[in-house]
Design a binder for these strands. Structure first.
Length: 428
RNA sequence: GGAGAAGUACCCAAGUGGUGAAGGGGCUCCCCUGCUAAGGGAGUAGGUCGGGUAACCGGCGCAAGGGUUCAAAUCCCUUCUUCUCCGCCA
């Protein structure tokens, strides 16, 4: 959520920021300003009436005590109470309108973020060379099937299209990846959290997924109660809510968390047909990093998150690139985003394995997460998140980039300790 | 899932319709003291919204949201959370 005071004092700045992400905020901003002026006018009226009411309420018991008759004042107050009720209704309607308009505004991109959409994303650097094969390389779907790492058919039998089963060595490889990620994060001083997967609406609201993207998650409805929960689409949704409505101290910042969860996404109407295998599914595994920082430390934290995510991919020895996303490709809540994309040889493209973002105070405003600074003033925290990493793109990259002429796949060295020392996964 | 109890500040806690939401602990400052402990005094309802250049003024706030009333922490309704007991269960 953006600061209403910023919109009030510098609407053109906000409009221009939105344009950078190809979002036309002009009408929304103008509406907000109009409603804000009305709201403040009505607020003034309601509050002076309430002040009058409060004063009278003090007088009535006094009059009674002195044996007087307060019925005159009481009659007047009854009339006033009616007016207050009307104005209050008007006020809450205006507040609600303003709030929902504010929610419709995306975060403002950082100054150095390029305008425009996906086509303006900029690769910053590459790691390693594209692997070359002196044989006809297979794609990850064929490799995973022939090595019995993934059972796509039975996955579909159990849960429909977009679901798969990690089997045998595939499951061990997947689990090894997650263990490797978690151990590296713990070494760096991040606290591991295992969070609920079913969250209440408020969590999605704070993260910025709701109200705009309520259709993109799975909802759980109980047969005997009305309460609804949703399956988290990323552990970020849980982690950025840990300190909702809390006031932290400057000393305890930055707070550094990681969580492992499956991520559940509907991916309704997306481009599944052209993407085979485990590139895109309804459930994938991910370790997520989240930091809460002071505003002046969030750039530093962002660099750290990017570096950490890169470190993991480098450890696996995969060819990847780091890209800086253009404003229009950053998600709704984020001021800046860098993606790490691994090379998938069979597809001839780079696919995201990590997305590192700085939300600045956008999520903290929605979640009311503050800290008391050295001058005892309250400020909103900054929140940042980055995948570290999502396995559903890493595994295809590993099997494709590490495949051998005989159809086997070499296990990256860092994973071997987690797999009982197995060096090569061979066809049986 | 069934029955009951509770939710007031950093913590404990009083408060069943009426002027400033008691009291204690803790914390901060001051006094006393050679130092510590003890003792004495003062401060300590956060936060947010609105107005004002400002010191300041005002609204809201007793888990959340509604209602009754001239007036609600207090009465009524709904929801949430916590605790105890019972049932079920990895």
């Amino acid at each position: 959520m953006l600061d209403i005071k910023l919109i009030r004092s510098n609407p053109d700045f906000v409009k221009a920021a939105a344009k950078k992400r190809e979002f036309d905020a002009d009408a929304i901003v103008d509406d907000i300003l109009k409603i804000d002026a009305q709201r403040r006018e009505v607020t003034g009226r309601v509050e002076s009436m309430k002040a009058e009411q409060n004063a009278a309420s003090k007088k009535i018991p006094q009059i009674k005590k002195e044996g007087g008759d307060p019925s005159q004042i009481m009659a007047e107050m009854k009339e006033l109470a009616g007016k207050i009720k009307e104005c209050d209704a008007e006020l809450s309607e205006l507040e609600e309108k303003q709030h929902s308009l504010l929610l419709g505004l995306p975060n403002m991109p950082d100054e150095d973020v390029c305008a425009g959409g996906k086509e303006n994303n900029k690769p910053l650097h590459y790691y390693k060379e594209q692997p070359k094969f002196d044989f006809e390389p297979k794609n990850h779907v064929d490799l995973c099937e022939s090595l019995h790492l993934i059972d796509y058919q039975r996955g579909a039998k159990l849960a429909g299209a977009g679901s798969w089963i990690y089997t045998g060595m595939g499951a061990r490889l997947e689990w090894a990846l997650l263990n490797y990620f978690i151990d590296e994060h713990i070494k760096d001083g991040y606290q591991l959290m295992l969070v609920p997967h079913m969250l209440n609406y408020e969590c999605g609201y704070v993260a910025g997924q709701f109200p705009k993207f309520t259709d993109e998650v799975y909802w759980i409805q109980n047969p005997t109660s009305n309460d609804k929960k949703f399956l988290l689409p990323t552990a970020e949704t849980a982690l950025v809510n840990l300190h909702r409505d809390e006031i932290l101290t400057e000393d305890e910042l930055p707070k550094k968390y990681i969580a492992y969860t499956p991520c559940y996404r509907r991916e309704a109407g997306s481009y599944r047909s052209e993407e085979r295998g485990m590139i895109r599914g309804h459930q994938f595994n991910k370790v997520e990093m989240v930091q809460y920082t002071t505003p002046d430390k969030s750039d530093e934290a962002f660099d750290e998150l990017v570096r950490k995510a890169e470190h993991l991919v480098q450890g696996l020895g995969l060819h990847y690139r780091l890209s800086k996303l253009a404003a229009g490709d950053c998600s709704f809540s984020m001021a800046r985003t860098y993606d790490i994309e691994v090379w998938i040889p069979s597809m001839g493209i780079y696919k995201e394995v990590s997305s590192a973002s700085n939300a600045r105070d956008y999520q903290a405003r929605r979640g009311n997460v503050k800290f008391r600074d050295k001058d005892k003033k309250l400020q909103f925290c900054h929140t940042l998140n980055a995948s570290g990493l999502a396995t559903s793109r890493v595994m295809p990259a590993i099997v494709e980039q590490y495949q051998n002429a005989d159809g086997s796949v070499t296990v990256p060295e860092v994973l071997r300790p987690y797999m009982g020392g197995i060096e090569v996964i061979k066809p049986e």
